[in-house]
Every structure is written in structure tokens, then in C-alpha cells.
Design a protein around this nucleic acid. Structure first.
Length: 835
RNA sequence: GCGAAAGUGGUGGAAUUGGUAGACGCGCUGGAUUUAGGAUCCAGUGGGAGAGAUCCUGUAGGGGUUCGAGUCCCCUCUUUCGCACCA
């Protein structure tokens, strides 16, 4: 017989809803706890990844609720973006309709699993009451000098007349029409995130973030200290500034490397014939896939520009080459090449027969140019460097850069790998950028009272490939808010990362029509105490959100410095070792599993499968195991209901006294062990959740305890033993509640409780029952296990050593050897060193 | 390529601070119960040797530190995530 999960789950979901236990109160006197899982894209159905992710959040939610916190666990939808636009085209509908339909389905599925979500705070980024404030933030950023326009390269398909996302470019061709993709220069809007680079590098407020996320962000920002050095063009007034972290190698510069996008190169190209080798090479490199260009394994290619620059430190002529391995986005977009001491430059110089000059000698002074097979990048002693000869290279950096600064050749500078955030998207299904272009006034912000700039509904999707907004004439054509002359709306929409950069704050005051949220509400809830999401967001989303939060702080909207106090990056759900995806055909539908085994089973399985930050492998058999476990829990309550019911009123002093044994009834050793197990379990589950969030081991501990309960004989127990047995059962729903809340509520009620499980609070363990009077020592000889020792817990070390040496098997292994040392680790082991 | 992680039985995983490797679950094997069961209960289960006590071996591969290494260090291999227009 299976336990009636279906009836139970629906029943308790309704009770939780009616009692509003998950509707958070902005004015509660209780301490707040804000738990947030990254909101999903409304694809129309929950997948296992969602279930796994949100089961973690729900376990924490219920734990904190039980601890007495005023908990907020809101939910919403990251509803704008390319997938929604494509989904609508496929279904011959409109994204506004399909998205809302999908949201309704997903909300039902969330409820079917019984997540404790505060639906009164639901947000969806595609609704005007939300995106209005995204536009408002754009304006605020603009007014604060954090928004600017610049031209940059995008993937462009001539056939489709549209911009392609990187993922839409497959092997250099368009995913739709397979024509070659080229790089096109477009004017784009940018957020000046680099202004916050240094502050984003400061993780001092984020001690509870995974170290690896902080490292990835640090590397992403890539702060490096170096020197800008100015090279004059031979015979011209033009100056090329290079950035280098190795000013100590400046005397060894034999050529200069520029990317074809460099402004100077663009000028040279104008005077070049269209069919020259030079033009062709530049065109080719510009159109190369960006990722492969930054990869070090791509063949380094270049072409000599025919021009020379003058090395300011020694007046030497250096060739200027156009190459595919220098990026315009980093540093000054120009590199001084020192082939002797940089591997990429070395390979390039050898390939094109460019001179190489050693300026740093290894400590043995054995570096010979002709024998070099790779660049020497280690520190060493300067040579061929005029007055700096014989200096140690690391120390010479400062000396050389100071000298260059004094002589106007260059200066110390700091460079970041981080680039400003390009937020323009040439797509329909996104938040319109609130700008109007007027011939007379230029770009004008849409006034606050006209926000939001509504996304027009009357678009024809899928008819043209270009941004549909361009063809909505009555939307594009408007009047200038400044002078009233005819003007045109900006047709770019914002990157969806903008929408997801501040939603966590909107939940605090989700329905405010006057502003994004009040400071009071934000200060009440922020920062998010626990944020949960995939590791794939380690850099971009999490950094954009931090940036937005710091901006909101700077304009006085929030008080704290960071949006997410603690971060948990959960792993993904795999099947047959691969990520579940439709294309691989290895998707498991949560709906089916819930129908068959119930929501509690799915949750328990997902949480039990692995620790939350690791990937977890789906297993049909494993789900059955979780279901079997819940049935076992159910069965013990059915079988032993009488004995439990009569002995579980935990606040009853008589029962408590009995468990403590004050009634002077004898307690058998198996019941003593059971009592130990009960209290040990409470300690274990609490520690696993509070200190590590390892739900898998917490659930394993409950299973282990349940096994002990099962083998306990309940015939002929005295009253004390009955109370101990009842306690050992009653503790289960109180601890299982965090993972399998429905069955736990039902069992809790079944044994006579009127209150809900969380209202009983977190169980306390009694340290008295965890004290053992004997302890097992492991005895090792030369690190190998040779015996065990059961001794009284307070036996002196000398006695333990003596007993250890007496063990027969130990004797065998020290025979004929001298015992040199005996190490005793208290309460753990004895290690004998014998040679 | 760069950056970040991970690799433990047939399998998902445990071992929290350098101290009994394999908890718990799945699978498998045996037993009990049942008219029967793919249900339930109990027990066993890394590999090898042995009647057994016990011994040898074993945490991707190779080396090192240590009385002692899954855990720390170095090298190699494999897999996963991110790389700025997927979210």
C-alpha cells in the first residue's frame, strides 16, 4: 500500500495558502529572512533543474520559518528575451500572449510542488508595471553620466538584415540562412560599469560567497597595473599609445602589433585600394569569430603595414604590423611587441622573420638568441637597456616607468579587462530604451510622466528578420518632448540582463506604482540573505546585479553595499551524464513524477541526490528509493500510532521526565541507543543545514535513524522506554518537514498535534543523551590499521598506549622492530611508529 | 586558448579540521513472509587471497611531503561551467 500522497499534498497546500504562512509582512517585528532563487524564463513548463533549484530554496525557507523568522521567498519571471520572441513565432502567436500563458502554467506547477512562495509579490519583467522602472533606471543612469553611446562591432547577417547573438552564429555562418556572418559597426548604448570596477573587486562584504565565484569575478575584471608608452609614428605627428605590464622590456621592442579595428588602421584603410592585400587581410580578421580570435591556439597572422613607429626610449624604428591576436577592447588597443620575452610575440616574430632582441638575461646569463625556442618570460637581469643594464628586471619596472614619466615618454596606468556593458539589442521583445531622437535637440530622454514607453502590440513577427520595432511607424514617429518637432523613437531595446539586475529589490515593494520601491521597504528586506542560482551566472548576472545595486545605493535608494549576502550556486540536473535538454531527448517531466510519486518524493530525491552545489544525476530507480523511504516513514506511524500518540506530547513534563529516566525505570541498551540516535539526529540535521546546507547528508541521517527505529522491538516496553520510542518517531516529521513538508504535516497532525510543524519550532537536542562513556580507538602501526580499542573515555594516554601495544595483532607487526614513537589523537587513534 | 571547478565501488554519493575509505540510497545476492507479486521485513555486498582469524590491494594517472593523504604540494589526463548579443 502506498501512502495517499495526492490527497495529503493538496490538503496541506490549501491550508498553507489559507493561513498565509508564506505571505511575508513588511511590517513584522520578527527578524526578516529574505531568500531568493533566480527567477526562471517562462518556458511553459517546469523542468527538473527548476525543481531541484527551488527545492533547495524551499528547504531553507521552511527551516528559517521554523526558526521564527519573517521569511520572504518571492517568485517572478525573466520574461523578455530572444527565446520568447522565437517561441511566439513558432507558435504563430504574440510573445505577450504566449508568455502570459506560460506563466500561468508555471505558477500552477510551482504550487503543485508546494513551494512556500509569496505570490502576492510576483513580478514579470515583460509587464509595463515592471519595465516602466527599468526605463526609469536607464534615465537615472543617463542623468548620472553612466550611459553613453559608442560604435561597436556586432555579428551581422546581410541576408537576414539582422544582428545575431553569438549563439546564433554557427561556425561563422547564420543559423537561419547559413550565409556568412560579418562584423558590422553599429552605434550602441553602454552602461559605464567600469566606473565601479574597483568597488566590484571589493568582496569584503561577501564572506559567504563561494570563493570560486569571487575569483572568477576578480579575473573577469582583470585589474592590472602597467604603463602607457607613447610611440610616435615615423615622419608624422601621430602618436600610438601602447599599454604594457612589462615596461622592463621596452628596450627589446622590435615591432608593434595593432588590431585591424584600431582607429589609425581605419584611417590608413581609407587610402588603400579595396582589393589590396592589406585591405583584404583587415577585412578577414575583423570578420573572424571573436572567441577564436582571443584564443591563444589560433594561428597568429599579420601583415606589415609598411609604416614604422619610433621607440621613445632609444629612438629605434619598429615595424608596425596588423595582427589577429591583439584586441581593440583591451588596454589601449595597441601592443608593443617584445618577441624575446612574450610568447605570442615570439611566435609571430619567428613566423614573419622580425628581429628579436634579448633585454633580460636569465640568472645564468646563458640565454642565446639563436638557441631560443620560446620566449623567456621569467625575471632576470637587464641587458641592452642603456642605463638600466644590470638591474634586476622586477625592480627595474618602477625605475623605467618613472624615468619615462619624467621624460614624457609614458606614465603608469591601471587597466581593466572589464569592458563597459553594451545594453543595446536590436530586438522586439525587450524593454524599449526611453530615448527620442530629434533633429534639432539630438537625443532626448522621454519625460517621467510618459513612462513607460509601451512596447507596441501591433508588430508583425517573423515577417521580416530585422527588428520589428523599425516597421511600427506610428510607434517610431513621435514628437520631441523638448521642442515638439517631429522625432523618432529609439528602436533598440535593453539587454534582458538589465531587467534581472534589480528585480530582487522590486520584490520588497512589488506593486508600487509611484517608484521602483520605497527605501523603507528595500531597507527592510535587503540584502537578500540567501541567493540561489546556477554557477553559469557566476560572472555576468551576478556582477551586473552588484553594479546596479551599488548605483541604487549611490542615488539613495538602498542602504547596503551588496545585494546578496550569501550565495549558493547549485549544480545542474543531468541524465546519462549530460545536461537535460530537448535536443538530447533526455528530459524528465516533473509533472509526470509528481503525479506518480508525489511532490515530497521528487523533492527528497533531488535534495538527496547530491549536495546542492554539485551536479546531480537523475535516476528513475533513485526516485523509487525516495518514495520507498517516505512510505517507510508513513508505515511506522501507522503501525505504532498508539504508542506514539500516547507518549509524544513533548511539552508534557511527565513524558520529558520519562525520557530523561527520572522515573527510575530501567532502560534497555537498545532504547538507550535509540535515544542517542534521536538526539544525535537532531544535532546532525541542524548542523548540516545551518553550517553546510548539505541536505543529502541530513536526509541520509534521517534514513539511518529510521532504520534504527524499525529494528527496535516495541513489545514489553516500560513507560520510560515507550516515551523514548515515541520521541524517536515524533522527531522525524519535525526534521523531515524541510524536505518533505506535506507528509510531515500530515504525520504531525496524525499523532495529535494541532499546530503546524513549523509552529513547534526547531527541535532541541539534549547533550546529556549524547555523552558516551566508552570510546573506540583505532590502532595503527606505520599508518596501517592493525586493531581497535574500546576504552573508558577518560583513560589516561599512557594507559591507552600500553593497551594498544598489548593487542595481539599489533604485537605481530612490531615484532623485531623498535617502537620509536606513539602518537595518540584523543578519542580517535593510536599510531605506533616502529622500525 | 584563457578563467573557474570536478574526477571515490556496478551506480548516485559519504568521509565537515591530515586520522577506521565507501555512511545513506540505488542495483545485485541470500533469507523471511505471502495464493502470488515488480509489495514488505531482515541480512550481505570495493577487488584479490584464505575454512577462518586475518592479510594484500584500492579514491583518474604519475611523483612528493607525513607516523598517517580521498584530503596538502608538483606534473599529466578527462569532464563540466563561463568567455561579454542565450538567459
Amino acid at each position: 500500500m502506498e501512502y495517499p500522497f495526492d490527497k495529503i499534498e493538496k490538503k496541506w497546500q490549501k491550508i498553507w495558502k489559507d493561513k498565509r504562512i508564506f505571505n511575508a509582512d513588511n511590517n513584522s517585528a520578527k527578524p526578516k529572512y529574505y531568500i531568493l532563487s533566480m527567477f526562471p524564463y517562462p518556458s511553459g513548463a517546469l523542468h527538473m533543474g527548476h525543481v531541484s533549484n527551488y527545492s533547495i530554496g524551499d528547504a531553507i525557507t521552511r527551516y528559517k520559518l521554523t526558526q521564527g523568522y519573517n521569511v520572504m521567498q518571492p517568485m517572478g519571471y525573466d520574461a523578455f528575451g530572444m527565446p520568447a520572441e522565437n517561441f511566439a513565432i513558432q507558435h504563430n502567436s504574440h510573445p505577450k500572449i504566449t508568455t502570459e500563458e506560460n506563466i500561468d502554467i508555471m505558477r500552477k506547477q510551482f504550487d503543485m510542488i508546494g513551494f512556500g512562495l509569496d505570490w502576492e509579490r510576483e513580478v514579470s519583467t515583460c509587464r509595463p508595471d515592471y519595465y516602466k522602472w527599468g526605463q526609469w533606471f536607464f534615465k537615472k543612469m543617463y542623468e548620472n553620466g553612466l550611459v553613453y553611446k559608442k560604435s561597436s562591432f556586432v555579428n551581422w547577417c546581410d541576408e537576414c538584415q539582422t544582428v545575431l547573438a553569438n549563439e546564433q552564429v554557427e561556425g561563422g555562418t547564420c543559423w537561419r540562412c547559413e550565409s556568412t556572418v560579418r562584423q558590422k559597426e553599429l552605434e550602441q548604448w553602454f552602461f559605464r560599469i567600469t566606473k565601479y570596477a574597483d568597488e566590484l573587486l571589493d568582496f569584503s562584504g561577501l564572506t559567504d560567497w563561494p570563493e570560486r565565484v569571487k575569483i572568477m569575478q576578480t579575473n573577469w575584471i582583470g585589474k592590472s597595473f602597467g604603463t602607457n608608452i607613447h610611440f610616435k609614428l615615423e615622419g608624422k605627428d601621430d602618436v600610438i599609445t601602447v599599454f604594457t605590464t612589462r615596461p622592463d622590456t621596452i628596450f627589446g621592442c622590435t615591432f608593434m602589433a595593432l588590431p585591424p579595428e584600431h582607429p589609425l588602421v581605419s584611417r590608413w584603410l581609407k587610402d588603400e585600394p579595396k582589393d589590396s592585400e592589406f585591405t583584404k587581410f583587415c577585412d578577414k580578421v575583423i570578420n573572424e569569430d571573436k572567441i577564436s580570435r582571443s584564443a591563444e591556439d589560433t594561428t597568429k597572422e599579420g601583415i606589415f603595414s609598411g609604416r614604422f613607429a619610433i621607440n621613445p626610449v632609444n629612438g629605434e624604428k619598429v615595424q608596425i604590423w596588423i595582427t589577429n591576436y591583439v584586441l581593440m577592447d583591451y588596454g589601449t588597443g595597441a601592443v608593443m611587441a617584445v618577441p624575446a620575452h612574450d610568447q605570442r610575440d615570439f611566435e609571430f616574430a619567428r613566423k614573419y622573420d622580425i628581429p628579436i632582441k634579448i633585454v633580460i638575461q636569465n640568472p645564468e646569463k646563458s640565454l642565446i638568441l639563436e638557441e631560443m625556442t620560446e620566449a623567456y618570460i621569467e625575471p632576470g637581469i637587464l641587458v641592452n637597456s642603456k642605463q638600466f643594464n644590470d638591474m634586476e628586471s622586477v625592480a627595474s619596472k618602477k625605475a623605467i616607468s618613472t624615468w619615462m614619466d619624467e621624460n614624457g615618454m609614458g606614465e603608469d596606468t591601471i587597466t581593466y579587462r572589464l569592458r563597459d556593458w553594451g545594453v543595446s539589442r536590436q530586438r522586439y521583445w525587450g524593454n524599449p530604451i526611453p530615448i527620442i531622437h530629434c533633429d534639432k535637440c539630438g537625443e532626448v530622454l522621454v519625460p517621467d510622466e510618459e513612462l513607460p514607453v509601451m512596447l507596441p502590440d501591433n508588430v508583425e513577427l517573423g515577417k521580416t528578420t530585422q527588428n520589428p520595432l523599425l516597421s511600427v511607424n506610428d510607434w517610431v514617429n513621435t514628437t520631441c518632448p523638448n521642442c515638439g518637432a517631429p522625432a523618432r523613437r529609439e528602436t533598440d531595446t535593453m539587454d534582458t540582463f538589465v531587467d534581472s539586475s534589480w528585480y530582487f529589490a522590486r520584490y520588497a515593494d512589488a506593486h508600487n506604482a509611484e517608484m521602483p520601491f520605497t527605501k523603507k521597504a528595500a531597507d527592510h528586506w535587503l540584502p537578500v540573505d540567501q541567493y540561489i542560482g546556477g554557477i553559469e551566472h557566476a560572472v555576468m548576472h551576478l556582477m551586473y546585479a552588484r553594479f546596479f545595486h551599488k548605483f541604487m545605493r549611490d542615488i539613495g535608494m538602498v542602504s547596503c553595499d551588496e545585494p546578496f549576502a550569501r550565495l549558493l550556486t547549485q549544480g545542474m540536473v543531468t541524465k546519462d551524464g549530460a545536461k537535460m535538454s530537448k535536443s538530447k531527448g533526455n528530459v524528465v517531466d516533473p509533472q509526470y513524477i509528481v503525479d506518480r510519486y508525489g511532490a515530497d518524493t521528487v523533492r527528497v530525491f533531488m535534495l538527496f541526490a547530491s549536495p546542492p552545489d554539485k551536479d546531480s544525476e537523475w535516476s528513475d530507480e533513485g526516485v523509487k528509493g525516495a518514495f520507498r523511504f517516505l512510505n517507510r516513514v508513513w508505515r511506522i506511524f501507522e503501525d505504532k500510532l498508539d504508542i506514539i500518540k500516547q507518549n509524544v506530547i513533548l511539552s508534557d513534563p511527565v513524558v520529558t521526565d520519562r525520557i530523561e529516566g527520572s522515573k527510575n525505570e530501567s532502560i534497555s541498551s537498545s532504547l538507550k541507543d535509540l535515544r542517542f540516535s534521536t538526539h544525535h539526529l537532531i544535532k546532525k540535521v541542524r548542523e548540516d543545514i545551518e553550517e553546510r546546507m548539505h541536505f543529502n547528508t541530513a536526509i541520509a541521517a534521517i534514513m539511518e535513524h529510521l532504520n534504527k527505529v524499525y529494528i527496535t522491538e516495541t513489545e514489553n516496553l516500560n513507560d520510560t522506554e515507550k516515551a523514548i520510542f515515541a520521541e524517536s518517531c515524533a522527531v522525524i516529521p519535525r526534521l523531515l518537514y524541510f524536505f518533505a513538508p506535506h507528509i510531515s504535516e500530515e504525520l504531525w497532525k496524525m499523532i495529535g498535534n494541532v499546530e503546524l510543524v513549523h509552529e513547534a519550532g526547531i527541535p532541541e537536542y539534549n547533550p546529556k543523551f549524547l555523552v558516551k562513556d566508552e570510546v573506540t580507538y583505532v590502532v595503527q602501526v606505520m599508518g596501517k590499521l592493525r586493531g581497535k580499542l574500546e576504552v573508558p573515555i577518560d583513560l589516561p594516554q599512557e594507559e591507552i598506549k600500553k593497551l594498544a601495544l598489548e593487542i595481539e595483532n599489533v604485537q605481530k607487526f612490531i615484532e623485531g622492530k623498535t617502537v620509536q614513537k606513539i602518537i595518540v589523537v584523543p578519542k580517535k587513534l593510536v599510531s605506533i611508529v616502529a622500525k
